[in-house]
Write a protein that binds this DNA or RNA. Structure first.
Lengths: 236, 236
DNA sequence: GAGTGGTCTAGACCACTGC
DNA sequence: CAGTGGTCTAGACCACTCC
């Protein structure tokens, strides 16, 4: 129960996602919310700012704050979200197949991506994601060994993130995603349900820790027909 | 010179982009910045928060704020950025060809995207974007007529946004982007320098005004080999 | 004019890093 | 320990909307 503004934020998100606050609804004013939650107005404003940043509400000067239409969870949504969270929100049956899990030295290409040397050991995990009965995504994760606790096949079959997050010494701070469209590799064709797609969507994900060090490089290779990326952006 | 925190933000962005503040540099502490800019710490914090959100700096509790590595302007970058701004930042020669400009009733498909009726007139602009001598993007913009001042061919050849922004009654507030990969249409093949690419990257952009109304729907169709989308995300 | 959100202040206490 | 960023407060004034 630390953090009043996060508590307010999560409370309101819950109300919106569960439909107790419908789109177009006007929220109580900031002064009222401050009274309701027994805090100051600036603290309420921090919570509302977060809601606004994440596309839940919209504020209009002189009028109030309004719930936005369906904050639809599309596939893969902007931001840092794990596959498991996504699958859950999409209400689809999903499965993860671990193809390999190795503690090894990185290939030169991966070392370059991770901005490290080929003699710095990494965990390499290759997984296939199945949704609605089809193998659609090939995930190749690489973690600096010294930054994370040891991995097992069981962990990789569940969610690496749910395992890692609470156990990391340094918290995850930010990530950069780069999306491109490329020629499929033999691997893509072999491990995904392919059907002759001529291209593959590659999402390269670089994840940084609290201390500003890069510790993870992941290549997510998506079958193009099932790929969908949604981005919500506010104007500054 | 309204808005102290925005002034500070822009000042620091400028220093970072011009290389006067190098990556890894430690910024002055929040208290020092407050003194420097003659304002309060919370106001400085608002500016730093913006810098952090946009990937310019990274804050570490107990240590300080540090300039992040190259805020690289990739193509098309996350957020709301116009083609002209992008081309400028990429230092490439670019050209815009206006294929058509009509005041018309929308096709049913577009009316649905804009959440309006087929009898609500719209401006429809079709443009081809050329970069480094190649025609790479086909842009189809649709604006609700009643929401914007009249367009001309000259405006469309320059930047619609630079024309619109200062002239809109209601300011632009947020936008939603959806990226998918699809089969190319005959139009794509006809108007872009094609070279037999088997798929096209479609970016659908929905832009909303201050009053929470949708006023623009744009389809940007990108040649897959030249497409690149970068997203920066912080963990909450 | 009353109510709204947007900005700003001057202080406070905390948890964390570094020495 | 002093210095840092993270949170929070209680007030203030402004620009805007609605009546």
């Amino acid at each position: 129960m630390d953090n009043i503004y996060l508590t307010i934020y999560h409370d309101l998100v819950k109300q919106i996602e569960e439909g107790r606050l419908l789109p177009e609804t006007k929220l109580p004013s900031e002064n009222e919310l401050a009274k309701i939650y027994g805090t100051s107005r600036e603290t309420v404003r921090k919570a509302l700012h977060l809601l606004s940043q994440n596309g839940y509400i919209h504020k209009i000067k002189g009028k109030g704050s309004f719930v936005l239409h369906v904050h639809k969870l599309d596939f893969p949504v902007s931001g840092l979200v794990s596959f498991k969270e996504l699958a859950r929100k999409m209400d689809k049956e999903s499965k993860t197949h671990v193809l390999s899990l190795d503690l090894t030295d990185p290939e030169p290409y991966v070392a370059r991506q991770l901005n490290t040397s080929t003699s710095e050991p990494i965990w390499k995990v290759v997984r296939v994601r199945e949704i609605g009965g089809e193998k659609i995504i090939l995930d190749k994760d690489h973690f600096l060994k010294h930054a994370i606790p040891p991995l097992t096949r069981e962990i990789c079959e569940d969610s690496i993130y749910e395992y890692l997050e609470p156990r990391l010494e340094n918290k995850i701070s930010f990530a950069k995603k780069v999306i491109t469209v490329e020629e499929p590799s033999a691997e893509d064709r072999r491990y995904l349900d392919w059907r002759d797609f001529p291209m593959i969507v590659v999402v390269r994900n670089y994840v940084y820790l609290d201390d500003n060090t890069l510790f993870q490089y992941t290549e997510s290779r998506h079958r193009p027909d099932k790929f969908r990326f949604v981005d919500f952006a506010r104007r500054h």
